[in-house]
Design a protein around this nucleic acid. Structure first.
Length: 422
RNA sequence: GGAGAGAUGGCAGAGUGGUCGAUUGCGCAGCAUUGGAAAUGCUGUGUACCGCAAGGUACCGAGGGUUCGAAUCCCUCUCUCUCCGCCA
């Protein structure tokens, strides 16, 4: 959500930004709603002010006198009018809010022009596939023992498509990855939180999943909760409607959670195996920072995510997402893609984003400057990392000619062995 | 699930229809005092919206109602606590 005043004062800037994002939004309708809202407020407040003055007078008058009775009578109609005006204010405010929620965040100047993912810029490529990817590489679903270690069929029976079981050493490897990601995040200064997996509608609205992405979340109708599509939702909402001490900034949190995504449609070759699931595990990194620091903090966040892949010895590249492909709430976004040597494809394993004050405004997360009024913080988040595709890259890139998979050094502390086989 | 109690400012805690955005205490900030500090005293200390400003309006868990007027009365909901039951 954009600030009403900011929009009023910087219409052209917003118009330009949204054009860059290829969003066709009716800014004039939002401006008109704002105008109507302010008009209604002014009208109501004049009437209310008069009513308050009259009531103050009546409080001092002796009750029961004819004068008092006359005043009561006169104020009856005034009171009814005030109520009418108050109703109009509520309606105008609601209409403005609905309109304002349709406005996406404005992309940062450093975000390149572009329309689709084809226009994203490759910022850097790390690692050498010639040395880092085994010659035995093949798509992970073609590894002979794959369906025993990650059992999709049993998942279909128990739940449905996209809910696999991880069995034996594979389950252990999943756990090792979670441990590794959390330990690394802890060393980088992120405080670990273990968050609720179901959230209410207010939380889902604050982080931007509602209202427009409702169909992508699982919903529990009895209690009206949503299964989280990412830890970003509960972790960011931790500070919803709060004022954080300026001295505490930047606040850095990490959290491991399963994530649930309905992801209607688009099942096919690109989404086989571990490439896309309805339930998957992820460690998320979240930061609340001073507005002056948010773009510098984005670079640090990206670095934190990159280091995880480097230590796993997985080749990857970093994309700077173009204005047309960037998310609704995002001001600037980097995607990290790991090289899956068997599929010979880049798989997105992290999306690191600066939301500037867009999300903080929806969520009401502010800080108090040394001298002055509370201001909105800037929020950032990024995966650190999503498990299944990292797992896919490990299985494919590290597959040995004998059919076993070499486990990256950094995971052995928790995995306990050097290889995975069945 | 049953019964009861409660929700007020950063915290504690008054207020049961009008002059209450709200007594007081603690905390916090500034000033005085001091060689410096503690103690003490004084002053100040919420947020949002409208307005160029002066100023105005709203907010006592949320939403509705009664009334000329609601923190205060009524209804609904949410949450917290205590006891009982059930349970990982």
């Amino acid at each position: 959500m954009l600030d009403a005043k900011f929009l009023r004062d910087h219409v052209d800037l917003v118009r330009r930004g949204l054009a860059r994002k290829k969003f066709s939004v009716n800014i004039d309708a939002v401006l008109a709603a704002d105008e109507a809202r302010r008009h209604a407020v002014a009208e109501f407040e004049v009437a209310r002010s008069a009513q308050n003055a009259a009531n103050k007078e009546m409080a001092a008058m002796p009750k029961g006198t004819p004068e008092f009775q006359a005043k009561v009578l006169a104020m009856k109609t005034a009171s009814a009018q005030v109520k009418e005006l108050e109703k109009k204010v509520a309606e105008a405010e609601e209409q403005w809010k609905v309109a304002a929620l349709t406005l996406p965040n404005v992309p940062h100047d450093s975000v390149p022009e572009g329309r689709t993912e084809a226009d994203n810029q490759v910022v850097l490529t790390w690692g050498d596939e010639a040395t880092l990817v085994s010659s035995a590489a093949k798509p992970h679903w073609d590894i002979p023992w794959f369906s025993k270690a990650i059992d999709f069929e049993r998942g279909v029976k128990v739940t449905g498509a996209g809910f696999p079981f991880y069995v034996g050493d594979m389950a252990r490897l999943v756990r090792a990855l979670i441990q590794y990601f959390l330990e690394e995040a802890g060393s980088a200064g992120y405080t670990e939180v273990h968050a609720p997996l179901l959230v209410n509608a207010a939380s889902a609205t604050a982080t931007g999943q509602l209202p427009d992405k409702e169909g992508q979340m699982y919903h529990t109708p009895t209690d009206d909760f949503y299964l989280i599509p990412t830890a970003e939702v509960p972790v960011t909402n931790y500070f919803r409607d709060e004022i954080i001490d300026e001295a505490a900034l930047p606040v850095k949190r990490c959290g491991y959670t399963p994530c649930f995504r309905r992801e209607a449609g688009s099942w096919g070759a690109h989404v086989r195996g571990l490439n896309r699931l309805h339930q998957f595990d992820k460690v998320e990194l979240v930061k609340w920072v001073h507005p002056d620091q948010s773009f510098a903090e984005l670079e640090l966040l990206r670095g934190d995510a990159e280091r995880l892949l480097q230590k796993l010895n997985l080749p990857y590249r970093v994309l700077l997402i173009c204005a047309g492909d960037i998310g609704f709430a995002h001001s600037k976004q980097y995607d990290l893609e790991v090289w899956a040597g068997g599929q010979k494809r880049w798989l997105e394993v992290s999306s690191c984003s600066n939301f500037t004050d867009f999300q903080a405004r929806r969520a009401g997360i502010r800080f108090r400057p040394k001298d002055g009024k509370p201001e909105y913080v800037h929020t950032l988040n990024g995966s650190g990392l999503g498990l299944p595709r990292v797992l896919a890259a490990i299985l494919e890139n590290n597959l040995q000619p004998d059919g076993t998979v070499r486990i990256p050094e950094v995971l052995r502390r928790w995995y306990g062995k050097e290889t995975l086989s069945l």
